[in-house]
């Protein structure tokens, strides 16, 4: 067998073994015999949740805790059901602001990162202000923003954007900068234009960094939407979950407060799950973070 054939053969073997492993997931004792393993992965968190709720319910019943201190899960569920229209419209407001802020942060963060990657001078001129925006507590800037913006909603949107913007910007910048120097040399050798280098090399290279920034920004946008609303002090119809939280507290309607909290947590979890899914789908073919380790 010649050398070429030998390595071809070796390669073919490597390939078939890769296919074997991907189609046949059974021989992984650590993750249990596939079917039961998958069931357990689903079952354990659910059982844990049900257990916690039962303990909570029993605790409230046994110690007869007043509902304005700690409502039982049943009462919270009742509140959720009864106040559903109010809570849902509040959730919708908060969610809209969060997603809008996130989208603007993504577009703006990536655009600014690309701009800064084009020239050291632009970076020197702009980056300090991005840092200043980030390190100044958003609650402290909120009163000013409120004065300058026409509506409270716009003010909250800006607060959420400021907070979500920085992780996207700094991660994408880092990703654009960490391009392999030899690949840059290769692009230079083949006389790639600046645009080609950006599209074919720098942006794909920055993708994992950007996606890590996206996951952070998604959570932060929600947090900032709530904090922004606290700071802005909205009231009445058209306000978000933060206002409903405060209102429930003033009225000692603790079951509704819990209901609003649960909705907020669920939203946060959903945003995290969605951004993680996007990240996984985009990286699963090639990036070490998303590829299952096989050994």
């Amino acid at each position: 067998m010649t050398a070429v054939e030998a390595e071809k053969h070796e390669g073919e073997m490597a390939r078939t073994s890769v296919q074997d492993l991907s189609t046949d997931e059974a021989p992984r004792p650590a993750e249990a015999g596939s079917a039961t393993g998958r069931w357990l992965r689903f079952l354990i968190p659910v059982l844990m949740l049900v257990g916690l709720i039962v303990v909570w319910q029993v605790y409230v019943m046994v110690y007869d805790v007043p509902h304005y201190i700690l409502p039982s899960p049943v009462r919270v569920a009742q509140a959720l059901a009864a106040d559903w229209p109010v809570l849902l419209s509040a959730l919708w407001v908060t969610l809209t602001i969060t997603l809008k802020a996130l989208v603007i942060a993504l577009v703006g963060g990536v655009a600014l990162a690309i701009l800064m990657a084009q020239s050291k001078w632009i970076e020197l001129a702009l980056y300090p202000y991005a840092v200043i925006l980030q390190v100044t507590p958003v609650v402290a800037i909120a009163p000013l923003i409120l004065i300058y913006t026409p509506t409270t909603q716009a003010a909250i949107l800006i607060c959420a954007w400021i907070v979500a913007f920085f992780p996207v910007l700094s991660n994408t910048t880092q990703g654009l900068r960490s391009t392999d120097h030899n690949l840059l040399n290769l692009f230079e050798l083949y006389r790639a234009s600046r645009w080609q280098t950006l599209i074919f090399l720098q942006l794909p290279n920055a993708l994992p960094y950007f996606l890590a920034g996206l996951r952070i920004a998604g959570g932060l946008a929600l947090i900032a939407a709530v904090v922004g609303e606290f700071a802005a002090g909205t009231a009445g119809a058209g306000s978000g979950l933060a206002f409903r939280l405060l209102e429930s507290q003033y009225r000692l309607n603790i079951p509704r407060l819990f209901g609003a909290l649960i909705l907020l947590s669920l939203t946060g979890v959903l945003i995290f799950a969605a951004t993680s899914l996007v990240s996984h789908l985009l990286l699963r073919k090639w990036h070490e973070s998303a590829v299952r380790r096989e050994n």
């Binding site: 392999d180 030899n182 690949l183 040399n185 290769l186 692009f187 083949y190 006389r191 790639a192 080609q196 074919f200 090399l201 794909p204 290279n205 993708l207 073919k285 090639w286 990036h287």
Partner: peptide
């Protein structure tokens, strides 16, 4: 180069296509 210097996000085909693509 001393290292293969391939783009990890691109398939073998796309890596080889690169000089022509540019």
């Amino acid at each position: 180069f001393q290292e293969p210097t391939l783009m990890p996000w691109a398939t073998v085909f796309n890596n080889v296509w690169l000089p022509l693509r540019l």
